[in-house]
Nucleic acid binder design. Structure first.
Lengths: 89, 89
DNA sequence: TATTCATTTAACCATTTGGTTAAATATAAA
DNA sequence: TTTATATTTAACCAAATGGTTAAATGAATA
């Protein structure tokens, strides 16, 4: 956790796309995977990195694992950037 | 350029520290380097990555090369995050 | 219970990353 | 013009990253 894992997670374009996709609501791993051309396992790894960074939450429902965005940790990044820009927040 | 090079540049803790240091004003490569335990060439590489991402600007003055923060490109990151958080900006 | 479906984990591989030391470049100073 | 100083570039290396395919796991269905 911390800003490092957040920034690292956000540094990959596919992971950012996954987050953007989850803006529309919760989706299963398979649904997410379908949006990309890379393999399921590759997506699964990306999901676990995002989850580790607490950028998303997962919940199993039967055969499916649903992922949903947790944007709250992005607040820390916002504050860091704002401070760099010399904003009083 | 683009959000990808910005995010990639920001994903390294030393590069973020360099930017934080430059919040206090312009500093020469040597002054920046003195703040860290890694070698000068390593810092030089970090500086070139930050410069490539347009996060800082450089200006030679005699023997010295001064670096200064360019926070303007961070606006794009702010907007991206805000949009993910479902903010109207 | 055996099979199928959804997903992750394991093992592996090529490329990228971030560091090192040594050499090159640019400018100032002796 | 030689020497010293500031910085980058080159060459190299170990570790991390992001992908692959094959195997394992979890849960539903036949």
């Amino acid at each position: 956790m911390g800003i490092q894992s957040t920034m690292k997670a956000l540094s990959d374009p596919i992971r950012r796309e996954i987050l953007e996709h989850l803006k529309t609501g919760r989706h299963s791993a398979g649904e997410i995977s379908d949006k990309f051309t890379i393999s399921g396992p590759a997506i699964s790894k990306h999901l676990s990195i995002l989850k580790e960074a607490d950028l998303l939450r997962d919940a199993r429902e039967g055969k499916f694992i649903y992922y949903e965005l947790n944007a709250s940790v992005l607040e820390e990044v916002m504050l860091w950037i704002a401070s760099l820009k010399g904003e009083s927040t």
